[in-house]
């Protein structure tokens, strides 16, 4: 048997009906090269896509069949949205669409035209990390960090609607996200700690760029010994 498609390519074709999207196949125009070559699909028309990504208005020309994940990563430039599996199994690409966590790899960009999208880059308030971000860092919710953006968005969505979640509610909220490093336990701890901040029980974290002066500086004209010590 002579086959000239790779197993991966054939798998992609297999998944097309499931994904209802043809995100990476044959969208290149009118090339016909060689006599045996048959074009897979006609190229997609371009559409204008207007959305608010991380509170910034974005207007782009996208393929009508473009997947949201590709648009966000390749065109909008929010590389914090991670591509883990393309099949909606790992949750790394979770973004908030009008407040709901959604998998951007299973979402056509056209479907969410005009909506408000928040990615992991949109969680922080300037230099101030969102409580969920600070807690993931502080309580070990992030190890290699690749799944972290998805977890952050999913748990932020939970905390927005429920600032006092039980462990079971947290489990339900992040059940669509896979993490291979942490075993989830420290992720749950982090979310619980962030919930405390949301409820006002714990103080909001300081910005990393806040001043933190040197306790024992020295400089010209300054005493080099503490008070009370005679040279």
């Amino acid at each position: 048997m002579i086959s000239n498609t790779s197993p991966c390519a054939s798998k992609i074709i297999q998944f097309i009906p499931i994904l209802i999207c043809i995100h990476s196949y044959g969208i290149t125009g009118e090339h016909v090269v060689g006599t045996e070559y048959v074009k897979m699909t006609p190229s997609a028309p371009k559409n204008v896509w207007q959305s608010k990504v991380n509170q910034k208005d974005v207007e782009l020309l996208i393929n009508s069949n473009a997947v949201l994940l590709d648009v966000l990563r390749d065109q909008v430039g929010t590389l914090g949205v991670k591509r883990g599996c393309d099949l909606g199994t790992c949750g790394c690409c979770t973004v908030m669409i009008d407040g709901d966590p959604r998998l951007s790899c299973l979402c056509l960009a056209g479907q969410v035209n005009g909506s408000e999208i928040i990615t992991v880059e949109g969680l922080a308030d300037g230099a101030h990390l969102a409580p969920i971000q600070a807690c993931f860092a502080k309580f070990g919710g992030s190890q290699c960090g690749f799944c972290t953006p998805g977890f952050l968005v999913a748990s932020q969505a939970l905390l927005d609607s429920n600032p006092n979640p039980s462990n079971d509610e947290i489990s339900e909220a992040i059940e669509g996200n896979l993490c291979r490093c942490t075993g989830y336990q420290q992720i749950v701890d982090s979310i619980q700690e962030a919930a405390k901040i949301h409820r006002g029980e714990n103080a909001t974290p300081k910005a990393a760029s806040d001043p933190h002066p040197d306790p024992h500086p020295s400089g010209p004209g300054e005493p080099s010994m503490p008070p009370g010590h005679a040279k």
Binding site: V120, E121, L129, Q133, A134, S142, G145, F146, A208
Partner: peptide, 16 residues
């Protein structure tokens, strides 16, 4: 302690 690179990871700035 938190990992020294964790802030990059939680803000989506870590570059894979």
């Amino acid at each position: 302690l938190q990992l020294v690179d964790s802030n990059a990871k939680v803000t989506g700035q870590a570059w894979y």
